[in-house]
């Protein structure tokens, strides 16, 4: 019998389609908060990737978190596929992005920050 922590990872590997954190906790018969902690562990170990959460859109333009059109995205977790090319930046809105040559100018539709 695999450890619960490993079962969490296996759940990601065998799952087809999205599942909510609450549903996954029910499937594994553990508390949602415990599952969050276990997912954190795999994120720290680089096996899962977390993104989204609170107000987050992009790090692209000078307006950043002041952008009127950013959305409150839910937090996502997914398996890290080491074979795929990684995009330039995943830095959340309002935070400095690594490997960014420059800040993008604000789009024409942005209001004052």
């Amino acid at each position: 019998m695999a450890s619960v922590l490993k079962q969490v990872l296996q759940h990601f590997e065998i799952r087809a389609g999205a599942v909510s954190l609450a549903q996954m906790a029910r499937d594994l018969d553990i508390d949602t908060a415990t599952l969050e902690g276990m997912i954190d562990y795999w994120v720290r170990r680089g096996r899962l990737r977390a993104s989204g959460g609170s107000v987050q859109a992009c790090s692209a333009c000078g307006v950043r978190s002041g952008c009127a059109f950013v959305s409150k995205m839910p937090r996502f977790y997914e398996l890290v596929n080491s074979d795929e090319p990684i995009s330039v930046s995943t830095a959340p809105c309002g935070q400095p992005a690594e490997n960014e040559p420059e800040l993008r100018p604000a789009c024409s539709r942005c209001g004052p920050v």
């Binding site: 992009c58 059109f69 950013v70 995009s87």
Partner: peptide, 22 residues
């Protein structure tokens, strides 16, 4: 969904996707 507001930040918002092809 961001594109329902404005297309420009929607294009920039694709940066939340980790894979270049996506």
């Amino acid at each position: 969904m961001v594109g329902f507001g404005c297309t420009v930040p929607a294009i920039y918002a694709t940066r939340t996707l980790d894979n270049e092809t996506d």
